[in-house]
Write a protein that binds this DNA or RNA. Structure first.
Lengths: 159, 159
DNA sequence: GATTTTCGTTACTTCGGTAAACAATTAAAG
DNA sequence: CTTTAATTGTTTACCGAAGTAACGAAAATC
């Protein structure tokens, strides 16, 4: 038990059972996020895809010819921040920046065959990681959690 | 709709309704975390307490004379990382590093009156922030969410 | 008494992300 | 039309939150 640096003052710790911190959604959300994110990295990690790269690639596969601005908005990050992610994916030959006839400003992102394949494998690995990590939850619990998290996501400050 | 950079290839987007990304707990967890953390900062922000400082102060108030090592472990961070947090709190005169008679290595953290008061106000502000942010959730939903997040936290890799 | 462990600390690095400015390009107003 | 606005991708500089490695002082172990 903490708070007992040998000369231990006040033993009111057991009296106080309102933990504040532990009852906050934000704090628990953060701690849970760190755990999941760490496991993700340990799974996909070591020259695999980072979470950022995975999510960017995922949307590129699902929405081929998506614009960088559109992608950034969907990911909830700034355009400037996306550049490095797309650079990394392009360097791995997982996608390409393609010129768009109509508008010479935009660069459409299109996954390569290699990228589509790598994404398929990554998805499998990620699903295995979640299956394993949340093995002690029932399907209902997972769906409930997902629903509640999405409910929070709806509060997102819109541009 | 994305993926339609004017010359819009394949319209299979509507066909594909398995979103992958949106069905991942990890992704939703992260997005939700960012939203809550941002609102926390906007509330307590501007020379208020950061989330790190708040949680460290919280545990110091609850467990006076807690050791830095103990605190770091409870927060799930490295001892080295805690130093800057304690430095910041000490600079604000919210707590003090007190020498411990028995062991000259450790520094017991003890909140000041000013710190206890500031923490009290911060707690109120944080609770208001969560009440407001999660106003569209029932008490049951919040408790369910808390329970599920704690279930994830139990998987924490122990030192 | 010699060795090992613990504690707080420093220095360095990494990662994810924002903000501001910019050139090129397109759209909108006049 | 021409001038002004806005948009796109990008670079650069910065910041916050962490981790790792090493260290000296002190304590614990053998």
């Amino acid at each position: 038990m903490p708070g007992h640096a040998s000369f231990a003052a006040a033993d009111l710790e057991d009296t106080v059972n309102a933990s504040d911190l532990e009852d906050l959604i934000g704090y628990n959300l953060k701690r849970a996020y760190v755990i999941v994110q760490t496991d993700f990295r340990d799974t996909l990690g070591e020259d695999g895809l980072s979470a950022r790269m995975f999510s960017a690639l995922s949307l590129t596969v699902r929405y081929p010819n998506i614009t960088q601005s559109e992608l950034a908005k969907m990911l909830g990050i700034e355009r400037s921040g996306l550049v490095a992610i797309v650079d990394a994916l392009e360097e791995k030959k997982y996608l390409a920046r393609a010129a768009v006839p109509g508008d010479r400003r935009v660069q459409a992102l299109v996954p390569t065959k290699k990228g589509a394949k790598a994404y398929g494998e990554a998805v499998a690995a990620v699903k295995a990681h979640e299956d394993r990590l949340f093995a002690d939850m029932t399907k209902t619990e997972k769906e409930t959690l997902l629903g509640l998290l999405r409910k929070i996501r709806r509060k997102e400050a819109k541009a």
